[in-house]
Amino acid sequence: MLQKRLYIVLFVAIIMIFNFTLSVLATDSVVVETEGKAYLGDDGLVNAEKKAINDGLRRAVEQAVGTFISSSTMVKNAQLIEDKILKSSQGYIKGYQVINKSIEDHIYIVKVKVEVGRKTLAGDLDALKLNIKRIGNPRIMVLLSQKVEDYYVDLPDGLAETEMMKQFIESGFQVIDRYKVDSLINREERRTIIAGDYDLAVKLGSQLKADFVVIANLRSNYIDLRKTLDGIAGSLKSYNSQVEARVINASTAQVIAAVTGDGKGVGVNKEMAAKKSIIEATENITEELIDRISNDLIKQEKTIQLQVNSVSSLKQLSQLKNSLPTLSGVINVYFREFANELLTFDIDLEPSVEVLDIAIELEEKLPFSFEVKSMSEAKLVLEIR
């Protein structure tokens, strides 16, 4: 009798835990309070506070996602559920509030109340826009080639490109105006870039101060419905559009995302059908591009290129090479090239670190002075005095 009661109690407990876990899994967001800390150095209170807030936000995401995973380990088949969470969780900041600030032993401490969301990032525009601002508000340039099979279908050549730019803007990205792009390149150069000339894409991106270049090809083909449908339905027109797109880091010429997609359209005439298919294909692929770019920027470390001009000795090279890995927020440093007094590195940084932070701290550590010649979200150019 006692053993039967124990089984009943155990069964009820398992049901309660399982229901609790389901409610956690269904929750779109959770509010947590954390502390963030930063060393109060010579760069002042403002930068220390900023670094402390970013540290608190990072800890909040870890805490929220960690709780989410821990709750799943209490149920049967916990490993399967935990694996699913690890693969699909998209922890991100939906909003935050600084509720206390203090300084102890040269450490700047902030207490923050943070709302951490768990939905797919691209599905929440407010959170997406906030995170885009936090990681430097990158600028995007779009070059898209659109081709419709039927020469007599009268649609704007820039229909798909305009639609893609519109979606990026609505998601919070800065997008470079198409007319500015076309004022610097001709049609042949545009075709060359879309065909895969990444060096030319980087050159154009640099001129327009773009951080990422999106290049895409879209083809729309007519589908004869008469072979499959009869009567009135058979008189409808149908098109299928296929699009492939790549995202290029404008500083390194590296492809950070490559996606494909399609869209279908049916209408009373070819123009209507082709337009519907083009818009659907563009919307589908842009949504995926936004998701890929956003998650890459927010969840992963970012890579910047450092160029140093007027490096006159191997000693200066060695001093730079030894100092870079010691900078705050630097994950990895890759020596790329040294020729004609020009030294190049690729540097992996934590998402919260800004290029300005690197320049300021590097100036403190090096025994020689330099001048900042140019600075962007993905590139820093210095010249030794």
Score class of each variant (00 low, 15 high):
229 L>Y: 07
73 T>Q: 08
310 S>C: 09
329 G>I: 03
151 Y>M: 12
96 Y>Q: 09
273 A>E: 03
328 S>P: 11
90 Q>P: 02
168 F>K: 10
137 N>W: 10
305 Q>I: 15
150 D>N: 15
95 G>L: 02
85 I>Q: 01
44 G>R: 07
160 A>L: 02
353 V>A: 07
350 E>N: 13
326 T>C: 04
373 K>G: 04
14 I>T: 10
178 R>C: 05
202 V>F: 06
186 N>C: 08
345 F>T: 00
180 K>C: 05
115 E>L: 00
120 T>Y: 09
256 I>T: 01
342 L>G: 08
43 D>K: 12
221 N>L: 12
261 G>K: 00
60 A>S: 11
315 K>T: 15
137 N>G: 12
224 D>E: 03
134 R>K: 14
221 N>R: 13
349 L>S: 01
78 A>F: 09
150 D>G: 04
98 V>Y: 02
273 A>V: 01
243 V>C: 02
307 Q>M: 14
346 D>G: 08
354 E>F: 11
205 G>C: 08
41 G>W: 07
300 Q>A: 14
378 A>K: 14
249 N>R: 00
87 K>V: 07
149 E>M: 11
326 T>Y: 03
350 E>R: 14
59 R>M: 04
250 A>Y: 07
216 A>P: 02
60 A>T: 06
215 I>C: 06
22 L>W: 06
135 I>G: 03
34 T>L: 08
208 L>I: 09
334 Y>D: 14
145 S>H: 13
87 K>A: 13
324 L>S: 02
188 E>P: 06
164 M>F: 09
66 G>R: 06
146 Q>S: 13
364 E>L: 01
104 E>S: 13
342 L>S: 12
141 M>D: 00
243 V>M: 12
103 I>E: 03
280 E>Q: 14
246 R>I: 07
121 L>N: 00
284 N>Y: 06
200 L>F: 04
310 S>D: 15
8 I>Q: 11
237 K>H: 05
162 T>S: 15
162 T>W: 09
302 K>P: 07
257 A>M: 05
7 Y>W: 11
330 V>N: 04
27 T>R: 15
133 K>Y: 12
124 D>A: 10
157 D>H: 10
211 D>Q: 00
369 S>T: 11
63 Q>R: 13
280 E>M: 11
95 G>C: 08
35 E>C: 07
364 E>V: 03
381 V>G: 03
121 L>G: 08
58 R>K: 12
2 L>A: 13
251 S>K: 05
161 E>S: 11
367 P>M: 04
304 I>S: 09
126 D>C: 08
357 D>P: 09
378 A>F: 08
5 R>Y: 11
138 P>N: 10
135 I>R: 06
281 A>R: 01
371 E>F: 04
92 Y>T: 00
161 E>D: 09
4 K>W: 11
358 I>A: 04
238 S>I: 08
248 I>Y: 01
45 L>C: 04
